[in-house]
């Protein structure tokens, strides 16, 4: 991956597509300066590429007339944007904060880690799933819960977690994933 990224860096082909650039530029009139478009631009790239490699940071900085270090500084503050490699086709956030923890959230996260062989922050080798822990998802009445893509999974049990895995990784890690969430 690092080598791939190094190749990306040296490539003259931009990593931001014309569509991404248009989407970013369309936000300029909403703010009195371009720097305020930093987080929206990072989201636009992250939604498409599932990560924001350094080359994208440099291109965003050019668009926003900032130093790449300014964009990188903001990016690195938040826990959301991966830079080394894209997250999985599904990124699942399992809540570990108090309301979920009181109803077994951490056991569900451990179960998912055990079943997939990955730890929070890691991606299954088939690229199907990235597991993350989350701090309070704001769905405490459904504890324990998990946000996978845009789907909120409520009142999780290990059985429901297994069902989720069978949707995300139907061939239990060997084959392709169906689109989930």
């Amino acid at each position: 991956m690092m080598r791939e990224q190094a190749a990306n860096m040296s490539s003259t082909e931009p990593i931001l597509t014309a569509e991404m650039v248009r989407e970013i530029q369309a936000l300029f009139p909403r703010y009195p300066n371009k720097r305020a478009v930093t987080l929206p631009a990072l989201h636009i790239v992250n939604d498409r590429l599932r990560y924001v490699p350094l080359k994208a940071v440099v291109e965003i900085a050019q668009l926003l007339e900032l130093a790449p270090a300014e964009v990188q500084d903001t990016l690195s503050f938040y826990g959301l944007f991966k830079q080394d490699q894209p997250h999985g086709r599904v990124r699942a956030w399992v809540c570990r904060s108090i309301s979920c923890a009181l109803r077994g959230g951490e056991q569900v996260l451990e179960h998912l880690c055990h079943k997939t062989g990955i730890r929070p922050g890691e991606t299954t080798p088939d690229g199907a799933l990235t597991l993350e822990y989350a701090e309070c998802l704001g769905a405490c009445e459904f504890a324990p819960c998990m946000l996978a893509g845009e789907s909120l999974h409520r009142e999780l049990t290990t059985a429901k977690a297994d069902e989720f895995l069978s949707h995300v990784r139907p061939a239990s890690g060997a084959g392709h994933s169906s689109a989930h969430a």
Partner: peptide, 9 residues
């Protein structure tokens, strides 16, 4: 984001 809070949602 305060743990336990979801009324705004």
């Amino acid at each position: 984001s305060e743990p336990g809070t979801f009324n705004n949602r």
